[in-house]
Every structure is written in C-alpha cells, then in structure tokens.
C-alpha cells in the first residue's frame, strides 16, 4: 500500500456510501498458515521480508531504527533477486526476438 492508492471519481462507487475508507483490500489467510502481522496496521504477510518492506514503505515515518534496518536489508536482498530476474527476463526477450526473426525468415 503506497499513498498512490486513490479512488477516482468518474461516478464510480458513488452509490455505496458505506465504503468510505481508502483501503478496501480484503485478506484471506489459509487456516493452516501462520502469517506475520504488521504491528501498525494488522495486515498479514507471508514472510518477515515482505513485512519489513511493507513497514518501510507504508509506515516509514513511525518505524523504529531496528525496523528501518530490517527494511534496508530486505530491500537490498530483494534488489539482488530482482537483478537475477531481470537477467532471465532479458534472456527470454532475446530468445523471443531472435526466435521470431528466424521463424519469419523460414516461413
């Protein structure tokens, strides 16, 4: 949840006066799982890393130094994963591009 969550006007949802809060996200936790919950807003998360990222983004102005450090290290770890993902995505794009180039040359 970032601050970008906004409900546009355009006549959407005007008749449902009962829903006035900005965040209408519902959660559904399977009964056999134990989520970690955000102490500030109660949102359940699948892992400590995701919770740390959430705290750093949504509650940046109220979190403790420890939580800030946890956010930084989770962000760092995620950046590493993201770099590997990008390499794979790039490889797939190259395969798609040259694959189609060759197929079009042959067909």
């Amino acid at each position: 949840m970032t601050d970008a969550t906004q409900r546009s006007g355009d006549g959407f949802g005007e008749t449902h006066g009962d829903e006035t809060d900005d965040d209408r996200t519902a959660y559904d936790v399977p009964s056999d799982e134990t989520p970690v919950e955000c102490t500030y807003c109660g949102r359940p998360f699948e892992s400590d890393a995701l919770l740390a990222l959430h705290r750093g983004q949504v509650h940046a102005d109220v979190i403790t130094d420890d939580e800030r450090a946890a956010y930084d290290s989770a962000h760092e770890a995620e950046s590493g994963q993201l770099r590997r993902f990008r390499l794979k995505a790039l490889a797939v794009l190259v395969v798609i591009y040259f694959g189609f180039l060759m197929v079009y040359a042959l067909v």
Binding site: T2, A4, L50, L53, E78, Q81, L82
Partner: peptide, 15 residues
C-alpha cells in the same frame, strides 16, 4: 503493473 506495485510491498512479488 502499477496496480501490482500499489498492492504489494515486494517488487518481485508485484511482478
């Protein structure tokens, strides 16, 4: 893509 980044704290999770 923007919606996913709005919903999820993790960047890889959003993707």
């Amino acid at each position: 893509h923007a919606t996913a980044f709005d919903l999820f704290p993790g960047r890889l999770q959003a993707i």
